[in-house]
């Protein structure tokens, strides 16, 4: 999953990016290369999921549905959250960075994530090869006599 997040954190102004489950468990997280990650991914994941869960009933009062993108802009940074399949993709930005500038990189990250998920699914669905095929695929020894074993009694 790191390959999904690394291009996001390489963008100037992105403090960290993470993939978390909707109930607040971090799947993967990434900070800028060569720097210690300031945000604790576990705490961040829990707080973001708590915030989104608390918004649900509030928005339900007016029958509003805003599940596509959430941006929380503060004086010391900005949080951007997008749903990514059954997970949430989030990034924390520096105060001077605009969340709108990250729309395209987020789309790209979501596409990468979908590709990774498809690849993992295809790998999981592919049946294991039969033993005979494994034997065929294995390289034959150069010296045939060396591989011969003595006949059993």
């Amino acid at each position: 999953m790191k390959e999904v997040l690394e291009p996001l954190v390489a963008i100037p102004g992105v403090r960290c990016a993470a993939l978390v489950t909707p109930d607040g468990v971090p799947i993967a997280s990434c900070g800028p290369a060569g720097e210690v990650q300031a945000e604790d991914p576990q705490a961040l994941a829990a707080l973001v999921s708590g915030w989104l869960a608390s918004l649900g009933p509030a928005l339900g009062l007016a029958s509003w549905q805003f599940g596509e993108r959430a941006v929380l802009r503060g004086t010391r940074g900005t949080l951007v959250v997008r749903p990514a399949g059954s997970a949430l993709l989030l990034a924390v930005l520096e105060p001077a960075t605009s969340a709108d500038d990250l729309r395209l990189p987020f789309e790209a990250a979501l596409a990468r994530l979908a590709r990774v998920a498809r690849g993992a699914r295809a790998q999981a669905c592919t049946p294991p090869p039969f033993p005979a095929r494994i034997a065929q695929a294995a390289p034959r020894p150069l010296d045939d006599t060396a591989s011969e074993t003595s006949p059993r009694d």
């Binding site: 918004l55 029958s63 509003w64 549905q65 805003f66 596509e68 993108r69 959430a70 941006v71 802009r73």
Partner: peptide
């Protein structure tokens, strides 16, 4: 600021 986007 808080900005939310979705079906609404």
């Amino acid at each position: 600021e808080v900005e939310l986007e979705g079906a609404s």
